[in-house]
Design a protein around this nucleic acid. Structure first.
Lengths: 244, 244
DNA sequence: TGCATTTAGTCATACTCTGTCATTATACTG
DNA sequence: CAGTATAATGACAGAGTATGACTAAATGCA
């Protein structure tokens, strides 16, 4: 774009300053949210704590939700990165499962604390217990699954427009992650082994069907030949017997 | 609560009036949303169309989102009802699958039209294309899965506090429904056969693993002896080999 | 008819978020 | 060093959603 000679260090300095402001806003916001609750914290209270104008907050974050979703975003980005980095020989199901586990582990590895509690736990609890944040986080996950689906489809050499399997696989594991967060909140600790265990328990439950190797086996089709899944819609079509 | 003798007709009349106002607000809202988009429709425009005060709107609906989510709520309630009505001898997976299909069919059966298009399609498209509504609808689904889980767990005689299978099953099918809505929007029609076919295709893909018959297996839960669930759980806890 | 309860309307207000313009800090140029 | 461009911030105004408090009217009941 531009020369990285003389101007670069200065730009870096400005970046650092921006980052400081940004981090300060995040920290102040989380502490206030934790102390008073998300809904009962006004944006001007956050900006007062950092001593910037309220308008500045909205220059750093698109919304009040946005600042709390910072970590959700990171977790999802981590997942996509991890998925792209899985070795090619792994079949889709295993790669997705391992990538999700990696992102969960990375989230748990965050060692910062807020009021003596791991920040990850504080954030998960905050999101889970605040309707507006829960909604925003589910939406964010949903919207970004497209990207993960593309990565997965690329990797497996299938077309996400016509093949439903990548959508299903990503969606299922995203849902599992929500369930893990739920249990995490109940557990009330950020014990990596324990929570990865919970994740594995769910993943084991899903079993081999969805996780099968797409490239070779017509796995999805235990009861017919159609593996293209478009055709797979057909035969199953079990007529719904009357409810009673 | 009270006598249903003399007062009943009056109460009924008041109820009808309330319902008329409410329905008028919903209709006006959907038409405006469809015409100008959700975000570009102000609440006072809706209330102007029905000729009530803006404040009145918020007496009928908790929020602007709420009025658009009316149909999502109905779909979810339909599901829970349908699940409770499934015959006992069906195994969990089949019952859940059929109940979801029933609620989908019922949604599709809505024959009202808005601007010559089926209302169900209009609403699905509206929700899917409006971030705020998408978020709210995902949240609503999430929050109400608790109830469905309880119904399912009751039915199967398992404890939802310790058994993860009902959570997983409900969550997976809820996610599938979102995927169906997605394709529905792409299809651009409200063709029952076609969309039920899409649902079945996803459901077939999930296969028997999660849908297994629980009645024979003891409640799994503690991963100590992760026996059960279909033996698929086998050698869980696979150590994650290095990414590269 | 008189009294209580419920429902709707009015007014006031808090909060989120956006647009705009002035002000300051910082970087580059001669 | 002065002068200028650019980016960041502040200050202010305003729209829109949502809530609380109070008032007026309708309704149910004595």
């Amino acid at each position: 774009m531009n020369g990285l000679d003389a101007t670069a260090p200065e730009e870096a300095r400005r970046d650092r300053k921006r980052r400081r402001t940004r981090d300060a806003l995040i920290d102040a916001a989380l502490e206030l949210f934790e102390a008073k609750g998300y809904e009962h914290t006004a944006v001007h209270e956050i900006t007062d704590a950092v001593d910037v104008a309220e308008r500045t907050f909205f220059r750093y974050f698109a919304s009040k939700e946005d600042v709390a979703l910072h970590f959700v975003r990171r977790e999802i980005d981590d997942f996509t990165t991890a998925l792209a980095a899985r070795p090619q020989q792994e079949c889709a199901g295993v790669a997705v499962r391992r990538a999700f586990r990696t992102s969960l582990e990375r989230l748990l590895a965050d060692s910062y604390e807020i009021n003596g509690e791991p920040r990850s736990l504080v954030v998960v609890r905050l999101i889970d217990s605040t309707p507006a944040l829960l909604a925003a986080s589910l939406r964010y996950t949903h919207e970004n699954s497209d990207q993960a689906v593309r990565v997965l489809a690329d990797r497996e050499g299938v077309d996400p427009e016509t093949d439903r399997r990548p959508w299903l696989l990503i969606t299922i594991y995203a849902a599992v992650l929500v369930l893990v967060h739920r249990e995490w909140r109940v557990v009330g600790r950020a014990d990596t082994d324990e929570l990865v265990g919970v994740f594995d328990a769910y993943a084991d439950e899903i079993g081999p069907t969805v996780s099968g190797d797409w490239s070779t086996t017509p796995q999805a089709t235990k009861r017919s030949e159609a593996h293209g899944l478009h055709g797979a819609a057909r035969a199953s079509r079990d007529p719904d017997p009357p409810t009673r």
